[in-house]
C-alpha cells in the first residue's frame, strides 16, 4: 500500500475486479471509473481516480467480489492490517 496516499481511499484489486461497474454507479463522489485497460481475465476493471474519496463504503458494500475492494478510512492505522 502506498504510504503517501491520502486517507480515506479505496483500493481495487484490478486483477480480481470483474468490471461490473456497480461501484462506479454507487460512488457519491464519482471518483471511480472503469478503466480503458483490460485485466488478465479480460475485464475492464474499476479504478480510483486518486482523489476525492470520502470513505462512505458504498463501493465496498456494492461490490460482489469479496476481495476486489478495500476501503481505508480516515482514521486507519496501517499496523492493523498485519
Amino acid at each position: 500500500m502506498n504510504e503517501n496516499r491520502k486517507y480515506p481511499f479505496p483500493e481495487i484489486d484490478s486483477d480480481i475486479c470483474k468490471g461490473c461497474a456497480l461501484c462506479v454507479a454507487s460512488c457519491p463522489k464519482d471518483v471511480l471509473v472503469i478503466s480503458e485497460k483490460l485485466n488478465s481475465k479480460g475485464f475492464h476493471y474499476s479504478e480510483y481516480v486518486g482523489d476525492g474519496c470520502i470513505g462512505c463504503g458504498n463501493c465496498y458494500y456494492v461490490c460482489p467480489e469479496p476481495s476486489a475492494v478495500t476501503v481505508y478510512m480516515k482514521n486507519y492505522v496501517p499496523e492493523e492490517v498485519s
Binding site: 480480481i16 470483474k18 461490473c20 461497474a21 461490490c63 460482489p64 467480489e65 469479496p66 476481495s67
Partner: peptide, 11 residues
C-alpha cells in the same frame, strides 16, 4: 475470486 458472474447479487 468467486465463481459468480459480474454484478451478481449473490456476491
Amino acid at each position: 475470486r468467486t465463481h459468480y458472474c459480474p454484478g451478481c447479487g449473490h456476491g
